[in-house]
Design a protein around this nucleic acid. Structure first.
Length: 930
DNA sequence: ACGCTCACG
DNA sequence: GACGTACGTGAGCGTA
């Protein structure tokens, strides 16, 4: 078929695929000879996924993968620094480059490159040819340099986000249409490609200028007219540099190619060629998968055994057909025997929901060896032929739940058998509802957290893909989504077996992968003393729950609703027309367009910002913003707290059971979800009253103990600030002391305002202070804020030293550490551009916040033993606070014991120069106790 | 699904 | 003289 109208050309940016594959995968090598093939493997997977996805009405009729060739292009002749800042290609990637060409050809996809040209130029030329011939083009790439090609039937597809980019997408990125993209790039330059552009001008400013003057040439010709002196001079002085930059970013769409569009027609692969290549690469899993798709037999891949050195563990491919469905006691006994022989087993439970307090057990999967796993269905419902929703009858061929648990209980509770899980807290809580205390345990999610915090999250999908190179079977197709979603007990047992058993298989493999790595990365102690032991403690706290009084909440909801209605009427009257007060978009239009209030700033989505800080400033101009602030506060309290909290009261217990994620926050802090009980209001008087609904059971008392200034104490210790340490020893008001030091005001002449400023600075230090941030927080001029900071560093030089050392350590090692050895990775620390500031401040904050998190973790882990003889329960953790419920008579004992544990939580691992102090409170509800 | 806004330490 | 900024979270809502 000749290329023309109705045709659809796909152009794949091959180099981008290669680099993404290289960085996404661990360094794999070919088993027979050690040839690095990780990137090739990833590349093949991506191609295969592309081919599988290329179907339907929108499918490509023509396709090519385009590569770069040679390092010297015409752009280097224009500018010898072009791409000069690029790192050398990694040693183990170089030999894989030609193999990606071979791979492309093996898929029978056209593979094009041309000496002296970049892939982008070939893509540009082909796009123009295809467009001129009346066809459509999709460029598969996320490279912004290609955005200039979009329009007239040419679109981009970002393969990472699976998002199409059309004219609007380009506009979003550059603030101008595709035809002006090069102009903006010429001005803004590009640090990645080392394109100079106009110094001091970024994309935002560039777009502004281009939109004002029409195009780059006009802008440069009329540069004299620009008001901002700096900008004007730059444009005049750097004209030559800017014009050269434009030549560098302008893609060549008129290359002479030695092939035509017709040569790019989509062709089916020759199975023999493709299988041959894959077998040569020794890719077992993908070979098998592609063979299946093509309906041919997978070639046998024989790997000659290495004679010397201990061979690495056999890499066993994933095969869902190998999983066993255990349907009776005999079959289960075989598995139990295997488990006892090994001394470990990976366990996963399937249930009817995500809430462990409510969900029922549906089945259990087990694995003791990579590639082999079983699923024990227990309460799957049978499919009824005449009923769309299935019946309530149990499906045939399942063990009875009781019989199964009776057999498994001794194993799950056996001291000599390690039970391995991914997010074991969930499974342990499920089992505990059936009277089984699972122990001892290991948790692959927490192992990953101890090693990889800051690098990625620790869900099974991410871990499997990253560390096993395997994409798990997705659950979505089994359960569906939205209101037609079903629970797992309605999934057919055969499908369930493949999915569920694979999870156990993956978990076991992750455990085998991570176990030795924990030692190598020196985080075994962290994992064993601060992650794993927290599981049973949190499980117990979550099961305890806290009693919440529905009537109190309901009354407050009604009161809030009434007040809101009044405010709403008043707001709309002042606005002159009805509108949705809860819509920031509509509010912005009212305030800035209709009422013409000053200072309207649009965000990146084109909407006006209407945050609390903006409205507070506007409140001096008009009454309306203040009313909206009041309305917003009530709306927040009602929807997030007084309304939503009622939904979370458990029917059986009358209590609210939050769930803590142990591996959520990078710093070691916990996070609370469903509901979040770590952000219950306290700062405003009205909000604080919500805590009155958190009550003690009859005859009991709520007790709250919280660390006083724990982060500042830790900072004083880590940075070695003697003045601070002494102030804590003397029990001084730390903020007042800081103020006195900084502003030379004697303590007895301290004013609240000076103290407030010093307090803001103290917090700022913990956050990696910046003049801008402090200025915004204190609402003072930038220069004044910077003056404060300079003065602070002058008085406490150790703080600056700590900051510099911490950042230097992060740059050197790629992570920072808490006092207890928790490592927080800082992958962005060497980044350039806006990321840099973020990463820097996060690196400064992480050891402080993380050490505080470690301290309270240690206290929590010791707490159950310390209070086991008391009629008391630990209910909640709020970062530096622990909340208990205790019988009235034992309140004082509990406070003594808990305080003892908390104040000494760092011993004996770390000897702090500053004592930790704990404040305590008690009452009938949380408001009184705090 | 994503951004905005706002609750907490 | 500003690319853009205080650190760490989760939830509800409006808007696409």
């Amino acid at each position: 078929m000749a290329f023309g109208k109705g045709c659809h050309l796909h152009l794949i940016d091959g180099s981008a695929f290669i680099f993404r594959a290289y960085h996404a995968l661990p360094p794999l090598t070919r088993k027979s000879d050690g040839l690095p093939v990780g990137a090739v493997s990833g590349f093949v997977n991506m191609l295969q996924r592309y081919v599988e996805g290329n179907s339907g009405a929108d499918a490509a009729t023509h396709v090519a993968v385009i590569f770069d060739k040679g390092s010297h292009t015409f752009r280097n002749d224009l500018y010898d620094q072009y791409k000069a800042n690029r790192d050398e290609m990694p040693e183990d990637l170089r030999p894989q480059i030609p193999l990606t060409r071979t791979a492309t050809k093996a898929f029978n996809i056209a593979c094009e490159e041309m000496e002296g040209f970049e892939a982008d130029d070939i893509i540009a030329t082909l796009s123009h040819q295809a467009r001129d011939a009346g066809g459509r083009v999709t460029i598969v790439s996320s490279d912004k340099d290609l955005m200039q090609l979009v329009g007239d039937g040419v679109e981009m597809l970002d393969p990472m986000k699976n998002r199409r980019i059309d004219r609007d997408g380009v506009f979003e990125k550059f603030g101008v249409g595709p035809e002006r993209v090069v102009d903006v790039q010429a001005l803004a330059g590009d640090s990645v490609d080392n394109i100079p552009g106009a110094p001091g001008i970024g994309i935002k400013t560039a777009a502004l200028l281009i939109n004002e003057y029409g195009d780059l040439e006009t802008l440069l010709d009329r540069a004299e007219e620009i008001k901002q002196p700096k900008r004007r001079e730059t444009l005049i002085e750097k004209r030559a540099q800017i014009e050269m930059s434009k030549q560098l970013v302008q893609l060549d769409c008129n290359m002479t190619l030695d092939f035509t569009l017709d040569d790019l027609e989509v062709k089916d692969p020759d199975p023999e060629v493709l299988m041959g290549f894959l077998a040569e690469m020794e890719f077992r899993t993908v070979t098998k998968r592609i063979a299946e798709k093509l309906g041919v037999d997978a070639p046998v891949i024989e790997v000659p055994a290495k004679e010397d050195t201990a061979a690495p563990p056999e890499i066993v491919e994933f095969n869902a057909d190998n999983y066993e469905c255990v349907r009776d006691a005999e079959a289960l006994q075989v598995w139990i025997n295997m488990i006892r022989e090994r001394g470990y087993v990976a366990v996963d439970t399937e249930t009817t929901g995500l809430n462990e307090m409510i969900a029922d057990l549906v089945g259990i999967s087990l694995s003791v060896e990579p590639g082999s796993a079983c699923y024990i269905p227990l309460s799957h419902k049978s499919a009824a032929w005449d009923d769309l929703f299935g019946s309530d009858e149990l499906a045939e061929g399942q063990m009875s739940l009781d019989a199964c648990l009776e057999m498994l209980k001794p194993v799950l509770e056996d001291e000599a058998i390690i039970k391995i899980g991914q997010n074991m807290k969930y499974d342990a809580k499920i089992f505990s509802r059936y009277g089984i205390d699972v122990a001892p345990i290991d948790d692959t999610m927490l192992m990953s957290y101890a090693m990889h915090a800051g690098l990625h999250n620790h869900g099974m999908d991410v871990l499997s893909e990253r560390y096993l190179g395997h994409q798990p079977i997705p659950i979505k197709p089994l359960l569906g989504s939205g209101k037609s979603a079903i629970t797992f007990d309605r999934v057919a047992i055969d499908d369930a077996t493949k999915y569920a058993a694979e999870d156990a298989d993956i978990t076991l493999r992750l455990w085998q992968t991570f176990k030795p790595l924990l030692h190598a990365k020196q985080v075994t102690t962290v994992y064993e003393t601060m992650e794993r032991p927290l599981i049973p403690v949190l499980a117990q706290m979550e099961q305890n729950g806290i009693k919440v009084d529905r009537d109190t909440l309901s009354r407050m909801s009604n009161a809030f609703a009434q007040k809101m209605a009044g405010l709403e009427a008043e707001i709309q009257e002042k606005a002159g027309r009805p509108f949705n007060v809860g819509s920031p978009k509509q509010l912005g239009e009212i305030l800035f367009d209709e009422m013409g209030l000053p200072g309207g700033k649009k965000g990146k989505t084109g909407a006006y910002a209407t945050g609390a800080d903006v409205l507070e400033d506007l409140a001096t101009e008009h009454e309306l913003p203040g009313l909206v602030l009041d309305w917003r506060q009530l709306s927040k309290l009602k929807s997030t707290y007084t309304d939503a909290l009622q939904e979370h009261i458990n029917k059986d217990t009358g209590r609210v059971h939050t769930s803590y994620s142990i591996a959520g926050a990078n710093t070691g802090r916990l996070a609370s979800t469903d509901p979040n009980l770590q952000n219950i209001p306290v700062r405003s008087e009205e909000g604080r009253r919500i805590r009155e609904a958190f009550v003690a059971d009859e005859g009991k008392v709520i007790v709250s103990l919280d660390y006083s200034q724990i982060e500042l104490r830790i900072l004083a210790h880590i940075a070695g600030i003697d003045a601070l340490k002494q102030a804590f020893r003397d029990g001084l008001d730390i903020h007042a002391m800081t103020a006195s030091e900084m502003f030379d005001v004697p303590l007895d002449e301290m004013t609240p305002d000076i103290r407030r400023q010093a307090k803001a600075i103290n917090f700022g230090v913990i956050y990696g202070i910046s003049g801008f941030g402090l200025a915004r927080n204190l609402r003072i001029p930038r220069g004044e804020a910077q003056g404060f900071i300079d003065r602070y560093f002058e008085r406490f030089p150790g703080i600056r030293a700590y900051m510099d050392e911490t950042v230097a350590f992060a740059k050197e090692n790629g992570y920072v550490q808490t006092l207890f050895g928790r490592k927080i990775n800082t992958p962005e620390i060497n980044a350039k551009g806006p990321h840099a500031g973020f990463a820097r401040r996060a690196a400064i904050n992480a050891p402080i916040q993380g050490t505080a998190a470690d301290v309270i973790r240690r206290a929590m882990i010791r707490m159950p033993r310390a209070i086991s003889d008391l009629p008391a329960k630990m209910l909640l953790q709020v970062h530096d606070e622990l909340i208990f419920e205790v019988e009235k008579d034992s309140v004082d004992t509990l406070i003594d014991r808990a305080r003892e544990v908390m104040e000494n939580a760092s011993d004996p691992a770390v000897k702090l120069d500053v004592k930790l102090a704990v404040d305590a409170g008690q009452g009938a509800n949380w408001a009184e106790a705090h």
